[in-house]
Design a protein around this nucleic acid. Structure first.
Lengths: 127, 127
DNA sequence: ATCGTGCTTGACGTGAGCGTCAACGTCAAG
DNA sequence: CTTGACGTTGACGCTCACGTCAAGCACGAT
């Protein structure tokens, strides 16, 4: 029941709407590590999951390096107490940052709605 | 009852935790336009409001150019129907983008919480 | 056998967002 | 009158996240 579907770089680029150059870039930074069939890159389910996380991180404005540390958290499953505690502290930091962003987004949305109202009122007045 | 408090560049930099270089950069891009007292920049309440919006936009990963168009929306109050309609469409786009980011942030938070749980369970198991 | 298609690896270029000098003006304090 | 704190304008440098060649390999189809 293991999903061993694989994809080429072109299919990946197409599915996720990124360039193959970006994919190679993520690989150089260690964010992706597709198998090889000879020279060619072979992407598996795992890489797709990671790529989705990468792109989300990028949309949120996180530097790729930071995204990398988050991705490593998912793999690591270290099993050693010290590392687990360290991981938990890292998670705490990321979460604090995301909560700040959540507030930022909500504030932004509120302001846009106010602005929208003002616009609509002005438009009424002109009619 | 107009608030005519003003600030120097150093106070601005200090209050908002940015460098004076960044402030000049925002000014070059037209995001800020402080008054001058001779050569010196004099920042008023308006600039502080704008700077707060700039920094929030930056935290959300918006390019400064895009932040500029949003800032212009606030000023413009165009009063002309065509421009108002255009402004409304712009607002719509920004809001759609913010809603996407809202989802991204929420998804990210959910995943971090799951990861956190797994960590804590692993930590239990080790105890 | 030569084509096109898809993939590969360098290597250099680019735009955004500042950082970091360098060189100079201005003004109150010592 | 010099010093120091604070400000000014260039101008070049740097990092990040890729874009954009260039040159070449591997393959099936014509």
């Amino acid at each position: 029941m293991t999903d061993d579907t694989t994809w080429t770089i072109a299919q990946m680029a197409d599915d996720f709407d990124v360039t193959h150059r970006a994919l190679r870039h993520y690989e150089q930074l260690g964010l992706l590590s597709p198998e090889r069939e000879g020279q060619r890159r072979i992407y598996s389910r795992r890489e797709r999951t990671r790529l989705a996380l990468i792109l989300r991180g990028r949309r949120l404005g996180f530097p790729l390096e930071e995204v990398a540390t988050i991705l490593d958290m998912y793999d690591d499953q270290p099993g050693e107490a010290g590392q687990l505690r360290y991981l938990l502290s890292q998670i705490g930091e990321r979460r604090a940052e995301l909560q700040r962003r959540l507030r930022d987004v909500q504030d932004g949305l509120r302001e846009l709605e106010e602005l929208e109202k003002r616009c609509e009122e002005d438009l009424e007045r002109l009619a």
